[in-house]
């Protein structure tokens, strides 16, 4: 039982971690606490529907379509909504992402209709049997791909020039502007990457169940993941995601599915009291 819960918890947690990572990338670059992250994830699932069902693209092109689509969407959001607000206070920035998610939801329902859709991508769907543990191949694929994406992102963030610029901008906006970094481009890139990461998570979630705007609620589990891990921390987002996945499975399995929210949000409150900067974040402003 336990090993089974741990496996499925880690698999789900990897998807949450991926979405949470996208969230952190956006937050680090533009200080926007993105309530629309769940909806961006849903957009990924619907991009897959367009590519695979409406356009009939083969699988590799479907992936490319999703990534490009998500990238363009992220850039568009940045230039249309985030940049015009230009560094306003916390709350308007939160609100604009809420407005964004209302708009995205309406647009999706207009294009695809409100009923959930079924999408079959050629991803493995069988079962591995290891002793008495049964692991869904889809779970394993989701976990492996999530980890690859996270690794890729970390390498990009730490080693590439663009990643360096991104880190520099995140550390000091004025300094970055003064040293000639085109901050707009960097921020737009961060939105593009954040949206892409969410979109990949969305593709896996819609394979686990249905393509529907209601997936947004699952995507929103990335929020506590991010906070538990530490808002500014890239590894924190990933580990926070894993932790939320594990808590979800263990709480549902051993106590009651209703207990899930309590077991996620009570530790979150405790962490805010004890280590407001999160388990893996760096100590910063946070305190009074």
């Amino acid at each position: 039982m336990l090993s089974q819960f741990i496996f499925s918890g880690l698999a789900l947690g990897s998807i949450y971690g991926l979405v949470a990572l996208g969230f952190t990338v956006i937050y680090k670059a533009t200080q926007v606490f993105n309530f629309a992250q769940g909806m961006l994830m849903v957009c990924g699932a619907y991009f897959a529907v367009t590519a695979s069902i409406h356009l009939g693209l083969p699988f590799p092109l479907t992936i490319a379509f999703i990534l490009v689509g998500a990238g363009i969407l992220g850039i568009a959001i940045y230039f249309l909504l985030i940049k015009p607000l230009g560094g306003q206070a916390l709350l308007p920035m939160i609100m604009i992402t809420i407005a964004l998610s209302i708009i995205l939801r309406a647009v999706i329902e207009l294009i695809y209709g409100g009923a959930p859709l079924t999408l079959r991508l050629p991803l493995p769907s069988g079962v591995f049997v290891l002793g008495d543990v049964r692991i869904s191949q889809l779970h394993v694929t989701a976990a492996v791909v999530s980890w690859l994406c996270m690794l890729l992102f970390i390498v990009f963030f730490r080693r590439s020039r663009a990643g360096l610029l991104m880190r520099a901008t995140a550390d000091g906006y004025e300094a970055a502007v003064l040293s000639g970094i085109r901050v707009d481009r960097i921020n737009a890139a961060a939105w593009a990457i954040g949206t892409m990461l969410a979109a990949i998570g969305g593709v896996f979630l819609c394979q686990l169940q249905l393509v529907s705007v209601e997936l947004e609620n699952i995507g929103l589990l990335a929020l506590p993941a991010v906070v538990i891990g530490g808002l500014q921390s890239v590894p924190g987002a990933i580990l926070g995601g894993l932790l939320v996945g594990l808590i979800e499975q263990l709480a549902s399995g051993y106590i009651s599915p209703k207990a899930r929210d309590i077991f996620i949000y009570v530790p979150l409150l405790l962490i805010l009291f004890i280590r407001p900067w999160g388990l893996f974040g760096q100590k910063e402003l946070g305190r009074v």
Binding site: F33, P224, Y265, L269, L272, L285, G286, R287, V288
Partner: peptide
């Protein structure tokens, strides 16, 4: 805590 961290505590 303040700012965003406080927002999240209210969410919890």
């Amino acid at each position: 805590v303040r700012g965003l961290y406080f927002v999240l505590s209210t969410l919890a």
